[in-house]
Amino acid sequence: MHITPPIAFLLLATLGLNACVSSIKPETKQLDFYDFGLQSNENRVSFDLPIEQLSATDAIQHSNIRYRLNDKNPAQVFGYTESRWSTLPAELLRQKIVNAPSNNTSCNVKLQIAAFDQVFDSASSSHGVVQLQAGLIDRRSRKQLASTLLSAQSTAQSADARGGVAALNAASTQALQQAADWAKQTSQSFSECQTSTLP
């Protein structure tokens, strides 16, 4: 089939335009990664009892920075699309802990992060909430002697991921301090937790 010059020109122009369009990639926003920064002595928490385990529920132990809208549906969980944790929440809390030596008691502490969310009460007001499930464990019998749910919160200074991270940093320190105080006080009620000669 013979193609006249005008038609050939149009075909070439169309092919060239398609090639240009296919070479254009959509602009992608670079993710922002957050942690709790370099820890100072003020942000570190000392435990009198050894920490046997620090974990988080599966819904929390990932890199998404979660938030909730209390004024709309407090049961619905959202995640910031352009912001992520640089490490897992359990590791963020672990970096705050000064652990006790393990040879002076037969009682250990187990901690699990049950909540780790920025909670919005309105479009401009939010706070970070950290909940810890704490348990006191007899290292010999593996029996759980006591347990409790601890909760701490801190006001966010800005209604975004940056403000939420700073609020969760402060709230996690408070929650860990509550756990340390609870473990120390509760262990005094159990003979299993008194000084021992365990290796």
Rank of each mutant, 00 (worst) to 15 (best):
L38M: 13
I24Y: 13
Q39P: 01
L15N: 03
D32E: 14
S23Q: 07
V21D: 13
P26D: 09
Y34D: 00
N43Q: 14
P26S: 07
P26G: 08
T28H: 09
N43C: 07
T14N: 06
Q30L: 11
P26M: 02
I24C: 10
S23H: 06
G16V: 02
K25C: 04
A19Y: 07
G16I: 06
L17R: 03
S46G: 04
F36I: 02
S46V: 12
Q30K: 14
N18S: 14
L12M: 11
L38F: 06
F36S: 01
K25V: 04
F33Q: 06
S22P: 00
G37C: 10
Q39F: 03
L12W: 11
A13V: 14
R44S: 09
E27G: 04
C20V: 15
S40R: 05
T14L: 15
K29S: 12
T14E: 06
V21P: 04
V45N: 00
R44Q: 11
L31D: 12
Q30F: 05
D32S: 14
A19P: 00
L15M: 09
L38T: 10
S46H: 08
L15G: 08
L15I: 11
R44V: 00
R44F: 03
L12P: 01
C20H: 11
L12E: 05
Q30E: 15
Y34R: 01
S22T: 14
T14H: 05
Q30G: 13
I24H: 11
D32F: 09
T14A: 15
R44C: 02
L17P: 00
D32G: 02
N18M: 15
V45T: 08
R44M: 11
A19E: 07
I24K: 09
D32H: 08
F36Q: 00
V45E: 01
V45Q: 01
D35R: 04
K29F: 09
G37P: 02
D35H: 11
